[in-house]
Design a protein around this nucleic acid. Structure first.
Lengths: 226, 226
DNA sequence: CAGTGGTCTAGACCACGGA
DNA sequence: CCGTGGTCTAGACCACTGC
């Protein structure tokens, strides 16, 4: 199995420090020539490293060396920024935020009464300018009437909502699994369709009713849930 | 993108009930011919379905339709058997169990005093006769001196240790991430090297010392952590 | 033993990223 | 506009599974 040797060779280069976090690998054609093989076989080797989170791909941009995973708390509702080591930069990008009638997809999870309105917010976590997490919030309007306006000037949604979240904390439901990225979310995370990712969903209840849903797709090389 | 159409076509077949959970797909050569394409492109489509946990691969055995994910509690130390729906069968297979001096790999995590002995136990969770989880336990000998002997007749380790675990529960450390399967574990889970899996580690402390380490590699299509 | 999946070759074209 | 990664073709051989 030639691709195992290629993989090991690249692992060694990373371990020895010749290849550093964030650095771009040479082009697939160059690499396959260096290893005396074809692109198909080379890509097999890269896929294994990708599955292990040692390298990652940005769609049509190439392959890069991954940084060590950032720890993300799954049981606390705290801003990700608090968990980023000083050596890395962090930025949160607001993708969209508005208040609308619940769609079918939302109602499948929230089971709201007819004509309920919810806040729907999408945002992206960026570490060292790389998008690593795509988050969607669905929040019953009554829970935080002023949310959208506040997001116009800041995007630390969990901070904004922290008083509310503290109240709801007692009945939460968390779910974590692996999913493949698809569609808009894949594009926003600069991933190709089908890239496996870590999927996390947190639901908070208020009087038996779903009040708060957070859904995050994490680039799996970037985070570790704690 | 031809492989997207192929993927969608298979998704539809699964949705419509023509393909049922556990069922084997036709051979890659047959499928690629039906779709009028090559094996490479067909495998691209299958890989996306695999990343989404809709189908899974058993090394050299073929492709199968996945069952819905089983919920696995990550915050409680309860036997998996309690969480298996009645429609599925569950079995726990003891791979190895013995008491030895801690190796380097173990000490990197447990940081034990010199010459400490630990119980080292490997076991496999099987659902419907399919191995879906490979678990390794490292347990300080003093914590449960009689463990190995008890495992000779039963393999519900968490039940056996439940009184101890209840005592240690107050200081636990949990970590979840995606990893690629490799080596013996890949073989035992009938997976090919590099298959992404859900990796879970739970550590319990006793008086600032690591007393209990549980490491699980889950086939990602099979489980959802809650 | 037949057929399968795993691995590999040697090309090709296209759309997109970045200069 | 060049080079890149994404996609695809049409084969091939081998080791293993399951009969």
């Amino acid at each position: 199995m030639q691709y195992i040797e290629i993989k090991d060779s690249i692992v060694e280069q990373i371990g020895s420090g010749v290849l550093k976090a964030g650095q771009k690998l040479p082009s697939e054609r160059q690499l396959s020539e260096s290893f005396g093989t074809t692109r198909v076989t080379l890509r097999e080797a890269l896929s294994i490293l990708e599955a292990n989170g040692m390298i990652f791909r940005e769609d049509r941009r190439g392959w890069f060396i991954a940084s060590p995973r950032v720890c993300v708390p799954v049981n606390q509702f705290r801003e990700l920024s608090e968990f980023i080591p000083d050596s890395l930069s962090y930025q949160c990008e607001l993708v969209s935020a508005d208040t609308t009638m619940a769609s079918k997809a939302i109602n499948d999870i929230m089971a709201l009464p007819p004509f309920s309105k919810i806040h729907s917010v999408d945002l992206i976590h960026k570490i060292n300018d790389r998008p690593v997490g795509f988050v969607t919030y669905w929040i019953a309007e009554a829970v935080c009437t002023d949310l959208i306006r506040q997001l116009e000037t800041r995007c630390d949604l969990l901070n904004i909502m922290s008083p509310v979240l503290d109240l709801l904390e007692h009945s939460k439901q968390i779910s974590v699994m692996v999913k493949g990225l698809e569609g808009e979310i894949a594009v926003k995370l600069r991933a190709t369709a089908g890239t496996p990712c870590l999927f996390e969903r947190r639901i908070l209840y208020q009087e038996e009713q779903v009040a708060f849903v957070e859904t995050t797709y994490w680039r799996h090389d970037s985070v570790q849930l704690i």
